[in-house]
């Protein structure tokens, strides 16, 4: 359960969600229904007012418990400008691996590998603030994938993207063997990339398909 600290209205109320390894879950819901809140709770950026969060078989309560979670689950933010904060693409993609204790050479190798995997070769020295919206989104995804996560959480990954970039995103997700949870208003995108879709409304989850 999570309460909004301004209106004290419960945003998420008696919500149960369980995701097993290998599952691909979609999440739809009206604006303000609490999708982002749910994701931030899972990553430990917010704390529930009641209830428990269990990740990788362990209950997570404190900041310290969530460090491991953040190393293994990648969250793609709604706004790529929030995610890309380094001056160059290479530095941004290498930021995660360096935080995980990789050496500079290893981090650069991973950066090259991930960019190539996403079809973004040669982007290393581009300046992050000069990228287009679609490029920013894909580079953000690269920064998350560079940490070699076991699971992904994508918050509205298709907003503001043109059809081609959406297609590319679908390809990338389909060819990966990651467990992931995607929130989106784009039901076609969700049906192409996920196996099960839930609807979030009134703080609760219902299966939608």
């Amino acid at each position: 359960m999570y309460h909004d600290n301004q209106s004290h209205r419960p945003v998420l109320d008696d919500l149960n969600l369980q995701i097993s390894r290998g599952e691909r879950v979609g999440l739809i819901g009206a604006n303000g229904s609490g999708k982002t809140t749910l994701f931030h709770l899972l990553m430990g950026l917010l704390r529930p007012t009641a209830g428990a969060i269990e990740v990788f078989g362990e209950e997570r309560r404190k900041e310290k418990d969530f460090r491991v979670v953040r190393e293994k689950i990648g969250l793609l933010f709604q706004d790529s400008d929030d995610q890309l904060f380094c001056p160059t693409v290479a530095e941004d993609v290498a930021f995660g691996p360096l935080n995980l204790g990789k050496s500079q050479d290893e981090a650069l190798a991973i950066t090259g590998e991930v960019l190539e995997c996403l079809g973004l070769e040669g982007f290393e020295d581009r300046l992050t603030y000069k990228l287009s919206g679609g490029e920013k989104r894909l580079i953000s995804l690269a920064t998350v994938l560079a940490m070699k996560p076991e699971a992904l959480i994508l918050d509205e990954p298709t907003t503001g993207l043109d059809e081609d970039t959406v297609e590319r995103l679908i390809e990338i997700l389909r060819s990966s063997d990651l467990t992931y949870l995607i929130a989106s208003h784009n039901s076609e995108f969700l049906s192409k990339t996920t196996d099960i879709i839930y609807r979030l409304g009134m703080g609760k989850l219902l299966q939608a398909n």
């Binding site: 931030h40 990553m43 950026l45 460090r67 953040r70 190393e71 990648g74 969250l75 933010f77 706004d79 400008d81 929030d82 995610q83 904060f85 160059t88 290479a90 530095e91 290498a94 930021f95 995660g96 360096l98 935080n99 995980l100 500079q104 981090a107 650069l108 920064t143 998350v144 940490m147």
Partner: peptide
């Protein structure tokens, strides 16, 4: 608000107070 979101995004990628320069 943006500063707060950037901090959160950095935390999600394992930020623990150290920055790195590559060039």
């Amino acid at each position: 608000d943006r500063a707060d979101r950037i901090r959160k995004a950095m935390l999600c990628r394992g930020f623990h107070g150290k920055y790195y320069l590559l060039s």
